[in-house]
Structure formats: structure tokens, C-alpha cells
């Protein structure tokens, strides 16, 4: 049982301490932002600032609770995570966000597809990027052309649909 072990070791859990600090910071930000609000003189018995204050207070208390739990090592055991795959996938999402407006949906999403596959250990990119772009183009065609969903067009889509760039 992990609970029994952690109670005996008594070394504070560093990551949990960071969580406590983040919660406290969010609480303070909400307090501060809400105190800056201008409350309009409309008929409002419970105004727009009451709920934010309640939430901020709650987060403050939870930060204290998390702190205590961190000191007592109350957090469950964590798996050993690899950060490499996470970097690939986040990289894919960032690349998609940046590429969408200029390269269009298929290319941007194809890159996301390939980098995600890479995160799961499948490559090489020169093979998976074309696969991703083709897959994304098919998806784009079905949703943007067939179902009129507004998805960004790029040179690839324009060339295939209209025959010119």
C-alpha cells in the first residue's frame, strides 16, 4: 500500500508543493482582477464580483490543503513519464497552429499527424508527413466541401479544387 509507505517517509513532495503555489497564485489573480472590476449601478443584490470572490477563497483554502498534503506526502505514486514523446506531440500542435493560416488545413494537420505518430515511435517523418497530409486532405474535402464546415484553405486545397494556386 502506497499510503502507508508515504506516511513513514515524511519527505515533502516537491511537485505537490509547486501545485499548491500555483493554486495560491490563481486565487490571488482572481482576487486582484475582481477587485479591479467596475460594478455597474444596476439593480443587483448579488453582483458580478461575489462568485469570483467565493471561487478565489475556495482555491486559497485548497492551496493550503494541498500544501499540507504535500508535506505529509499524501499524493499517489507517479509513473515514470518520458518527456520526449510529449515534446513531439506538443510540437505537432504548435506547428499546426502556426501553419494553418498560411499552409492550409491539410499541410498543417498533416504535420500534426506525423509528429504525433513520431511521439508514439512511428517514423520516419519523410514518410509520415505525406501520409498525414493525404489523410488530412481527405478529411478536409469531406468536411469543408461536403459539409460546408469552415476550415482554412491553403495552396494545396486551392490547387486541387480549382486547378490553380
Amino acid at each position: 500500500m502506497s499510503v502507508g509507505q508515504s506516511n513513514s517517509t515524511r519527505r515533502p513532495d516537491g511537485a505537490a508543493l509547486v501545485i499548491a503555489v500555483i493554486l495560491a497564485a490563481i486565487s490571488i489573480i482572481i482576487f486582484w482582477q475582481t477587485s479591479q472590476m467596475r460594478v455597474p449601478p444596476i439593480q443587483q443584490r448579488v453582483g458580478p464580483t461575489v462568485f469570483p470572490y467565493i471561487v478565489a477563497a475556495g482555491l486559497g483554502l485548497l492551496a493550503i490543503g494541498t500544501l499540507i498534503s504535500a508535506l505529509r506526502n499524501g499524493f499517489p505514486a507517479r509513473s515514470k513519464d518520458d518527456y520526449g514523446p510529449i515534446a513531439w506531440i506538443i510540437g505537432g500542435l504548435v506547428a499546426q497552429i502556426l501553419l494553418l493560416s498560411t499552409a492550409g488545413f491539410s499541410v498543417a494537420t498533416g504535420v500534426l499527424f506525423a509528429l504525433t505518430a513520431k511521439g508514439f515511435g512511428r517514423g520516419p517523418l519523410w514518410q509520415t508527413i505525406p501520409i498525414g497530409v493525404i489523410f488530412s486532405f481527405i478529411v478536409w474535402f469531406i468536411f469543408a466541401r461536403g459539409l460546408q464546415l469552415s476550415l482554412p484553405m491553403g495552396p494545396v486545397e486551392r490547387f486541387i479544387v480549382t486547378g490553380s494556386f
Partner: peptide, 16 residues
Amino acid sequence: PWLYAGILVFATLGTL
């Protein structure tokens, strides 16, 4: 690799 890559494609498509 293909399953999760596909999930991300559709998740971003739906959001967009």
C-alpha cells in the same frame, strides 16, 4: 501511433 494521430486530427478539426 495512427490511432492517436487520428484522434488529434479530428479533435482539432472539431474545435476549428
